[in-house]
């Protein structure tokens, strides 16, 4: 750690470049002219064109909007359910909490395709197929168990003295939750929201099963139908893929530190 050899940086950069090649390739293809897509691929977008992006945005803008709505809906639902539950588990010592935690753990292991079939069977009867609401609920099942476990792990690390003192001052369970526990757990909220959004945004299985014929389809399904419809216009498909990757890219740049802060804050207790 004293000597910081440059060759390691060079090797690291090389490995990263190799790893990220598919991402580069996606961007490269998205900038390629339709005429150049056939035959030997071009390594660099020497004559970049935005025809892919024009086509993509022209057709996929509503899908992007739908995905945003689903993403935010999923975040709201997840936080509203997970934060109080984490509080009940970690601070109010809910009886049977260990069992509940175990159930949540197992819940995360259930394959999405199984959940999708169950939801399909339920939604057929309730008429919730092809609705944005139905998809928000289904997508949230990916994030809720994770959210509860994350919150309760973090909240279990909140100093007991803080809660005790508030209790002595006469604060009720609600006050303690709203004015102490929730604000202190802000980083957990950011982390949970972040992943809930990302998973809902990226979801393909629920979208392709529960919202196949919907009026409002999310962007993942937009790309999928794109692939099915016009296999010649891969520049437009890749352009849509680039646009669909933006939230991930933005979060990596903006919130990476935030997530890291949440991680270390929670890790201190160990």
């Amino acid at each position: 750690m004293t000597a910081r050899p440059w060759w390691k940086t060079a090797l690291g950069a090389l490995l990263t470049a190799f790893m990220l090649f598919p991402v580069y390739w996606m961007v490269n293809v998205s900038l390629t002219r339709t005429a150049d897509l056939r035959g030997t691929p071009r390594w660099f977008p020497t004559a970049p064109t935005f025809e892919g992006y024009t086509a993509a945005l022209g057709q996929q803008l509503p899908a992007l909007g739908t995905s945003l709505v689903i993403g935010f809906g999923c975040v709201a639902l997840t936080v509203v359910i997970a934060a109080p539950a984490g509080y009940a588990l970690a601070i109010l010592n809910l009886r049977g909490g260990r069992t509940l935690s175990f159930l949540l753990l197992v819940a995360q292991m259930i394959p999405a395709v199984v959940m999708a079939m169950g939801f399909y069977a339920v939604y057929v009867r309730l008429g919730l197929l092809n609705t944005v609401w139905g998809l928000i609920v289904a997508d949230s099942t990916i994030a809720v168990p994770f959210g509860v476990l994350l919150y309760s792990t973090f909240m279990a690390g909140i100093p007991r003295e803080l809660v005790q003192a508030a209790r002595i001052d006469g604060a009720g369970t609600w006050r303690i939750f709203g004015s102490i526990v929730l604000p202190v757990s802000r980083n957990s909220t950011v982390t949970v929201s972040l992943f809930a959004f990302l998973w809902a945004w990226s979801d393909f299985i629920f979208a392709s099963t529960l919202n196949r014929a919907g009026e409002f389809i999310p962007i993942t399904l937009g790309i999928y139908q794109y692939i099915g419809n016009n296999t010649t216009q891969w520049n437009a498909i890749m352009a849509t893929a680039v646009v669909a990757s933006l939230p991930a890219a933005i979060l990596l740049v903006v919130a990476q530190r935030y997530v890291a802060a949440g991680v270390t804050a929670g890790a201190v207790k160990d």
């Binding site: 588990l89 970690a90 909490g97 999405a112 168990p145 994770f146 476990l149 994350l150 792990t153 992943f195």
Partner: peptide, 12 residues
């Protein structure tokens, strides 16, 4: 694609 996330030891 699958439900990700995971599992800390039973908390608290």
């Amino acid at each position: 694609g699958g439900a990700a996330g995971r599992a800390p030891a039973a908390p608290g």
